[in-house]
């Protein structure tokens, strides 16, 4: 089976709010596929449909050969789902939660321990602690262990790293990589643009529609507009002046630099001249390659 997931013309509305607008995507077996988009993009609605928890208004979706509506019973035995909100039993201990999830899938912790070993051993010292009393990072690891305990073929992770610090995020992605080695197809959503680079392919999603689907490398290399990093001593003044400049198509802060995209027929020379005219000293202008976040923002404005 080449495609683990086939999504065709999927739509879903809540009243007059269109959460998903005619979405079609194929996700390959064994890949890490990322849905990159912010709150309200439709990621959670899509995940709920793909995990058979919600019925679409239009269109069809097949996950590992099962139709998400007709074959939901078989499908559920074969997928793991980690929702965005912590959904384990807060008043059960770490071990009790894991036992419970193993139990409803008619398996045991021992049977699939190899799958969760790397993750679970980090929380095992706290196995008798109630889930509600765990720190954010530990809750996340327990939720992932519970989603994996029945050896799913495909794993859905809805914003597993939102509100999580940089260090724990890096650790979490290491775990995902090792799960991929075991042949599990991983579908993950995130609002963090830097995590896109860690996926095999990504879909940039905004207001229920797909902006683009490709490998992170291609998304960046297919972006043909020139882009410059600009730095000056007075950040506030730089922002004001560059926003006013007639040649500016867009200008956004990226950490200490401003990323500047000129309108057609303008380049760094135009910007240099402009700054000279305004008597700027120590201006730094450097042509750079776009990041996923640059591309995403340009696609959002379109």
């Amino acid at each position: 089976m080449n495609n683990a997931i086939i999504i065709q013309s999927l739509s879903k509305s809540y009243g007059d709010v269109e959460a998903l607008k005619n979405i079609s995507i194929d996700i390959k077996t064994g890949e890490i596929f990322g849905f990159i988009g912010s709150d309200g993009a439709g990621k959670t609605t899509l995940f709920r449909i793909l995990t058979s928890l919600m019925i679409p208004d239009h269109g069809t979706a097949e996950v590992i050969g099962f139709d998400v509506v007709k074959d939901y019973k078989e499908l559920r035995k074969n997928l793991g789902y980690m929702p965005g909100q912590f959904s384990l039993y807060q008043d059960l201990t770490v071990k009790e939660n894991l036992n419970f999830f193993a139990g409803i899938f008619k398996t045991s912790i021992a049977e699939n321990y190899h799958l969760i070993e790397d993750i679970y051993k980090q929380i095992e010292p706290f196995k008798n602690r109630r889930a509600g009393k765990l720190s954010g990072g530990m809750k996340q690891k327990l939720a992932l262990s519970c989603a994996l305990i029945h050896k799913p073929k495909v794993l859905f992770l809805d914003e597993p790293t939102t509100g999580v610090d940089v260090v724990s995020r890096a650790e979490f992605w290491e775990i995902l990589k090792s799960l991929k080695q075991q042949g599990i197809t991983i579908v993950v959503s995130t609002p963090y643009m830097d995590e896109a680079a860690l996926c095999d392919r990504v879909a940039l999603i905004q207001k229920g529609a797909i902006l683009t689907i490709d490998t992170p490398e291609n998304i960046v290399s297919n972006f043909h507009e020139p882009i410059y990093a600009v730095k000056a001593e007075n950040r506030h003044k730089l922002f004001e002046d560059i926003s006013k400049f007639e040649a500016t198509k867009s200008a956004y802060w990226f950490g200490e630099n401003m990323h500047w995209i000129p309108k057609e027929n303008f380049d760094e020379k135009s910007l240099e001249n402009y700054f000279n005219m305004l008597n700027y000293n120590n201006i730094y202008i450097q042509k750079i390659s776009a990041s996923i976040e640059d591309v995403f923002m340009e696609l959002m404005i379109k």
């Binding site: 912010s38 709150d39 993009a41 956004y252 802060w253 976040e293 995403f296 923002m297």
Partner: peptide
Amino acid sequence: EPTSGVDPITRR
């Protein structure tokens, strides 16, 4: 954490 999960343009 006022901007967690907010889109990149609104964040700015």
